[in-house]
Nucleic acid binder design. Structure first.
Length: 424
RNA sequence: GUGAGCGUAGCUCAGCUGGUGGUAGCACCGGGUUGUGGCCUCGGAGGUCGUGGGUUCAAGUCCCAUCGCUCACCCCA
């Protein structure tokens, strides 16, 4: 067998690339409308950056990172997510002094060493946005609204779930209440949940087992344990969503896999993707900038959208976008003299911005017509031996099949100009 | 890391209880049209049946191993 791509690494073939471009272009346009600007950050970072931001004890850091030692003996990692790198850049370049509130987005590949499955790859792509320097609850609503609007403009319908995870002031008390609840039911829940009770107690609430969910009906809710500030923030965030008429469900069992989240968290969910139901997710991370060595009191909020999942959804909802027009004109030449003249004309047309295709292999006219059809050319310029002898070429409209002749007598750039006139 | 399913042409797949790999569909190339596309028609090219062992007179088919893919668990976008 010849060399194949790595497990979990996929080629995006020409047929699919159009969907990707469409998603990316739509996203950029929406992000710009909301005042976001692009930031491009490296794919490799020091391992420590991710360990400190995502959390040492998370699955991502513990077992999913592509980390290795480079030639200097330093541990570096291919980024598993985008937020850490963006914050690092924000801090490193002191961006907070340029604008009190920074709205940034970045688009690119992420890497996690997991077992691939539908909607989950080892190299995958995210579009992620971050707002740094403001903790107003209306901002939470605005950021969520932007994600919602983008998906809407892509023609996708998803559901929105939100929750609040509290803050360092109120979460510990909740955690204790939850732990004592779980301790009383250790023998009534699945093995996974028993294990999670000690590793990451909040996660048990996420369990998919119906039996466990039944047990957790009576579990204490984080929302009942929020401190006054957090409760107020959550209430005003929801009020903001209400003002924008964005429907949501409060899911007090929703937990996030990265340690840095606090207060508002949310997920944009679909039921069309099997096990990978989240097409986008994010939340607030108020302490993170400071934790990474940045200025104190720099709150942040952001989310990421999984591009592969968007592509899957789009191609499921609206299969095959149809043939795209890849050429305005196809030049079909027969014989060497005509070929040479056509080749020169081809370049002149391209210099003028016309999308022109031509067969360089000297194949039959029929074959060239087929090629013209395949690239969906509107016109074909036929330059055969007969035409050349009469100093003419035939211009054929592929849709109407009408043909007209064009004089090749003047200089080639005049022919080119004449031709462009006819094309328009 | 765990479990299940599947590997036959570039793609989608037939191939029964073992008996010579399919006129299969799509795509590709050429002819029918000595110089005109889509539709039609005729022809052509394209394969280590994932790989390595084993059973057998005989293996795409049965057994074992291995690699790969897919889906699910876990986790996540």
């Amino acid at each position: 067998m010849s060399i194949r791509a790595l497990k979990g690494f996929k080629d995006i073939l020409p047929d699919e690339a159009g969907v990707w471009q469409h998603i990316e272009a739509t996203a950029r346009e929406v992000f710009h409308r909301f005042g976001f600007t692009e930031i491009k950050v490296p794919i490799l970072e020091k391992t420590e950056l991710f360990a400190r931001s995502i959390g040492e004890a998370t699955d991502i850091v513990e077992k999913e990172m592509y980390s290795f030692t480079d030639r200097n003996g330093e541990s570096i990692t291919m980024r598993p997510e985008g937020t850490a790198s963006v914050l690092r850049a924000f801090i490193e370049h002191g961006l907070q002094v340029k604008l009190p509130v920074q709205k940034l987005y970045t688009i690119g590949p992420m890497f996690r060493h997991e077992r691939p499955q539908k909607g989950r790859l080892r190299q995958f792509h995210q579009m992620s946005v971050e707002v740094l320097g403001l903790d107003h609850p209306l901002l939470d609503a605005e950021v969520i609204a932007m994600g919602w609007l983008l998906l809407d403009e892509l023609g996708l319908s998803v559901s929105l779930q939100i929750n609040s995870l509290g803050c360092p002031a109120c979460r510990p008390a909740y955690k204790e209440a939850l732990l004592s609840f779980l301790a009383a039911r250790q023998d009534k829940v699945c093995e996974d949940c028993q294990r999670r009770s000690s590793t990451n107690p909040l996660r048990v609430l996420d369990c998919k087992s119906a039996h466990c969910q039944e047990q957790y009906q009576a579990a204490p809710s984080i929302l009942d344990h929020l401190c006054p500030d957090c409760a107020d923030h959550f209430r005003r965030t929801r009020a903001g969503l209400d003002l924008l008429a964005i429907p949501y469900q409060v899911n007090n069992f929703m937990v996030r896999g990265l340690d840095y989240y606090c207060r508002t968290t949310f997920e944009l969910l679909t039921d069309a993707l099997g096990a990978q139901s989240a097409v986008g997710a994010g939340g607030r991370y108020d302490g993170l900038v400071e934790q990474l060595g940045g200025p104190k009191n720099t709150p942040g909020i952001g989310f990421a959208l999984g591009m592969e999942r968007l592509v899957l959804l789009l191609s499921e909802q609206q299969p095959s976008a149809g043939l795209s027009q890849q050429a305005d004109l196809f030049v079909a030449a027969l014989g060497e003299a005509a070929g040479a003249k056509a080749f020169a004309l081809l370049h002149l047309l391209r210099k003028k911005g016309v999308r022109v295709a031509m067969d360089l292999a000297g194949r039959s006219l029929k074959s060239q017509m087929k090629q013209a059809d395949r690239v969906n050319a509107r016109y074909v310029l036929i330059m055969g031996e007969e035409e050349l002898a009469a100093n003419e070429a035939v211009l054929r409209d592929m849709a109407s099949k009408e043909q007209s002749s064009l004089s090749l007598a003047p200089a080639l750039d005049q022919v080119c100009a004449e031709l462009i006139k006819k094309l328009n």
